[in-house]
């Protein structure tokens, strides 16, 4: 062929692809407007994936401008653009997230819905279902309802609960306060001083005490979800912290291996190539082959050619016909 050189040059072309860009495209897929309109059956599958990624892969849904629904028995969660973040739960309850509010779904079943609010202001429009407990855990308090509309705002020092309609029960420090339409309650978050107002009216704000308590250890699921969310938002420092917490807190968990792998990718994204290599070195199991190749590459990026070479050779010994063998051959030279 006369144009071999041109072809070879074209073969070497590669887009400026990196993890953040990859994540941005994934977010675009999630935010795709055509996803999820109920009147468009074809959207169901789109919806499943997009909402799934939002609600489950990431777990958290501090996502602006999207609406997420999860249907009950044959869930066809949907995502459609709206002006503010909304989360529709499988029982039809709606959570509206204001600003940078964050809420995580801990449990959804016919008898119990449990959410954790970790930041900001959210409005809950809970469908009436006497047989189902609907609980929002916020700081050290819990808000339990069966069918109502209320808002919860978590600031650095306080949790504010305001009932728009219906009744809610706010629990904290072994006590409970019932609020009805128009009433509001301010609860000290975490370790603040305590005082219970003599009465709670529609126009006043009461304060009850919440005793200091030991914060529960975050679950593996919560850490993974938090890390995914942080990565999705480009907060790589946060993602790294969550993943490190996971692998140090739950070293024996089967998900620790993938967490190490992800941590390696996150560290690489942060430009910390030696840390990335160290993380990849911890990976075992199904991802071990990929991780070994990534480790070699990371050592190379870190400027440690000797370790890159050694690692690449180890890869070739273990996986002479592996997926990354060609790349490792170059590093091993």
């Amino acid at each position: 062929m006369e144009h071999d050189e041109h072809v070879r040059a074209a073969r070497r072309l590669a887009p400026a692809w990196n993890e953040l860009r990859e994540q941005r495209v994934l977010q675009r897929i999630q935010a795709e407007p055509r996803i999820g309109a109920h009147e468009r059956p074809r959207g169901a599958l789109f919806a499943i994936a997009a909402a799934a990624v939002l609600l489950v892969a990431f777990g958290w849904f501090a996502v602006r401008g999207r609406r997420v629904e999860v249907a009950a028995n044959a869930p066809t969660p949907t995502v459609a653009p709206v002006s503010e973040a909304q989360v529709m739960l499988h029982d039809g309850s709606l959570v509206r997230l204001v600003g940078d509010a964050r809420v995580a779904v801990q449990e959804q079943s016919s008898t119990s819905v449990r959410l954790t609010q970790t930041k900001g202001l959210a409005r809950y429009e809970v469908t009436h279902a006497p047989a189902r407990a609907f609980v929002v855990a916020v700081a050290d308090a819990e808000v339990e309802v069966h069918g109502t509309t209320f808002t919860v705002e978590l600031t650095e020092k306080t949790v504010k609960v305001k009932v728009v309609e219906g009744n809610v029960l706010v629990r904290g420090d072994g006590r409970a306060v019932k609020l009805t339409t128009g009433e509001a309650l301010e609860v000290a978050a975490w370790r603040s001083p305590v005082q219970v107002a003599p009465s709670v009216t529609a126009t006043t704000t009461a304060t009850i005490s919440v005793a200091p308590s030991v914060k529960p250890k975050p679950t593996v699921e919560a850490l993974l979800a938090g890390a995914d969310q942080a990565r999705a938002e480009g907060r790589l420092d946060d993602a790294a912290e969550q993943l490190r917490t996971l692998v140090t807190t739950y070293p024996g968990d089967p998900r620790a291996a993938s967490a190490w792998f992800t941590l390696g990718k996150v560290e690489r994204g942060r430009g910390r190539h030696a840390a990335a290599a160290a993380a990849f070195a911890k990976v075992s199991g199904a991802l071990a082959e990929d991780a070994l190749a990534e480790e070699a590459t990371s050592w190379k990026s870190a400027g440690d050619a000797a370790r890159a070479r050694t690692t690449a050779k180890r890869y070739l010994e273990l996986h002479p016909k592996g997926l990354h063998a060609q790349r490792m051959l170059l590093l091993a030279e």
């Binding site: 499943i48 939002l54 609600l55 869930p75 699921e221 998900r255 993938s258 967490a259 199904a286």
Partner: peptide, 30 residues
């Protein structure tokens, strides 16, 4: 199609298995 909660093990196997999981609504697989 039901949307399953994320599979507890985030380490996937092969594509065929992942496709199966995606068909079942597993978002992490997707």
């Amino acid at each position: 199609m039901a949307l399953a909660r994320p599979s507890p093990v985030a380490v996937p196997v092969d594509d065929a298995r992942l496709v199966e999981l995606v068909r079942g609504g597993d978002s992490r697989a997707f």
